[in-house]
Amino acid sequence: MNSNDLLKEFIDVFYFIVQNMLPVAIPLLLVALGGMFSERSGVINIALEGIMLFGAFFGCLFVYYVQNTGLNPQVILLLGMVIGAISGFIYSLLLSVAAVNLKADQTITGTALNLIIPAGILLFSRMYFNSDGVTTRVRFYISKIPVLGDIPVIGRLFFQNTYITVYIGLLLLVICTIFFYKTRLGLRLRACGEHPHAADSVGINVYRMRHLGVGLSGILGGIGGFFYAVGIMDGNVNGHTGVAGFGFLALAVMIFGQWKPIRIFFAALFFAFFRTLAPSRSLIPFVRDMNINAAYFKMLPYAATMVVLAFTSKKSRAPKAEGIPFDKGQR
């Protein structure tokens, strides 16, 4: 093999990794943004894993029932996204009511919400579909976007072999950033996570802000879950593997991103890169030659999380009031 071939192979691998990385990064990004809204309003949201799976399940269920109607796959995807967002929001109410109104322990509530969904999906899928989840056969995958996909380099990097989830995700990132930093509501939400009593004293309804924060995390979590099902699971959802800890990885992404939207975006790319190494290892020549057990690649995102957290947690910028129920009477 001469150096020219090697270079060509290297470029192909690079394209392959970028093309595969983006659909993985988007669910992480959206769910981490959801976690950010929730935590910056003062509620720890460990239930993201469950919210994702809930959104993914109902999104896929919707796809399952409309897949024979001949609708355009991309329209189905958009409608499924709306279904995922609505179901994620509804499910997040279970957390916000418990955490905000009933002042429950947020970690325990979140854990319970994570456990209900896989069991529920297995229960219903086995009874009605005789399988462990919902399997759909709509092709959401886009091999090449017209015009844009023909642009040299950029076209191949960002507009070939992809899903529209990538563009929706980036659009949502922009919207979230603007909402978070440039609107009055965003400022109020952030105040409730830092010093709820100060916020309360200037007339902000802390309870409502926290409901908003958790609700947004439900919407983004539900969308993220459906995008996970579309972009990683090929339109399927399964009660056994669920979303493979992506809700928890998203929490790590959020911490690594220091609870800030743009940083979260780069953190999501970082984690998505590790996640993409597992399926692409057979394509990368020197990794292939090392003959490493596949299990190490599966562990990589989780291990990378720990390494990153070990370095970033000392000077953590966590919202000061997160996890503490707000009690109006307490000073």
Partner: peptide
């Protein structure tokens, strides 16, 4: 009676959910 075993996992996780604030209730 045709119920999958996971029904118990559902029950157990609901029990966890309510334990988080049942004292308050």
């Amino acid at each position: 009676f045709g119920y999958e075993y996971e029904i118990i996992d559902v029950v157990i996780s609901v029990i966890i959910y309510f334990s988080a604030f049942v004292m308050l209730m």
